[in-house]
Design a protein around this nucleic acid. Sequence first.
DNA 1: ACAAAAGTGTTGCTTTTACACCCATGC
DNA 2: GCATGGGTGTAAAAGCAACACTTTTGT
Lengths: 211, 211
Amino acid sequence: MIESTPVSVDVLALRFDPVGRAVLLGTAPRAAEPFAGELALPGVLLGLGERLRDAARRAVTDKLGLPADAISATGQLATFDEPSRDPRGPTLSVALWVTLDPTRLTDGPTHWAFLAEVPPLAFDHDRIVADCRPLLADKLWRDPAFTAGLLGPEFTTAHALDATEALTGDRPYPANLGRTMERVPGLRRTTQHAAALPRGGRPPSVWRWDS
Amino acid sequence: MIESTPVSVDVLALRFDPVGRAVLLGTAPRAAEPFAGELALPGVLLGLGERLRDAARRAVTDKLGLPADAISATGQLATFDEPSRDPRGPTLSVALWVTLDPTRLTDGPTHWAFLAEVPPLAFDHDRIVADCRPLLADKLWRDPAFTAGLLGPEFTTAHALDATEALTGDRPYPANLGRTMERVPGLRRTTQHAAALPRGGRPPSVWRWDS
DNA sequence: ACAAAAGTGTTGCTTTTACACCCATGC
DNA sequence: GCATGGGTGTAAAAGCAACACTTTTGT
């Protein structure tokens, strides 16, 4: 019987912060060696017969200390196979994204980093984040599960602008983003308007998913 | 110590046949139970510390019986994690694509199927093929490694038309495909022309990759 | 000459990007 | 009022799809 490479699941846990108007990535200091104390993506070893999604949920609850029901959606990103990525020995890492519902978060060891300014992380996690960033940007407005998971069931144009800027790096014109959103299946502009920002400005439309 | 899920690598081995004007998928009858005798994608268990690419190479040589130097390129597709996908027990399957150089192929147990008419396969391999087909179609003319691997260092407009039709399902206008190809970085139309087909027609241009 | 297939040029449509201008709010 | 910021309309630009017509071959 040939020994097989252990598989870990590393999670890019994303959360949209409507107050800070930013997309945040959840990391936590490692509890054990190697890299004890250093920030890392939440990750766990995949159990026998465990589904990737379930392992991702476990990583979020065990490593970030967040409740499982804060997870709004999950999906695959890519697989990393460099044998030297873990000093303990070769492991495969399947990177998954997880979106979190900001209303259900609890306090925990989580360090929330702006997606644009992720601090140095343990293992090859810097590389994982760097490689996966464009994949994430690509999912916004294209992958409905990702988009709805990140922004929630209801959000304003202002939120959409902020999230897009955080993921892609530049801020679209509100008019154009509105037209993009109208072409997203299942998403509709409601007749409601949210409260305007403290600094004033026209109150943005509220968008909602069907059903 | 928690037992971890074994990882297998399943390969979509693609070959462009300039004579048959088709893209072919390599499958082979399984040598052992389960599904002995039934056609399946070439797959191997990932060894400890083995890279995915190397495992894919092993699958192609061991299961399809092709020489390793027939492999022109490789890349990742997706990971399949349904615990019941293998009756022997839960395994993870990482699907990779491999392109083959038709000039270096040898005879072997390989059954070459038209990509559009893949016969029923063992395990969940039908599903893997179905899920990965759009991903492959997306790579043509976008992923230079895939495109160059499939079509080789030098090919004609006629080949490009055939490969595009095989992957996407419909045949582009030669004029429009030519303009698409001129925008592919590293690809250039040469001044050469290949021989015309037996039925006549204008001889197509030869295209070549830089350097 | 005729048929077949690639290439050229052109046209119309869709998508993207950009911006001027209008509207609704906080101050 | 003024500043702020979203929304409407429009227009230029880029990309894409379709097709008429030409070119170059085989028969």
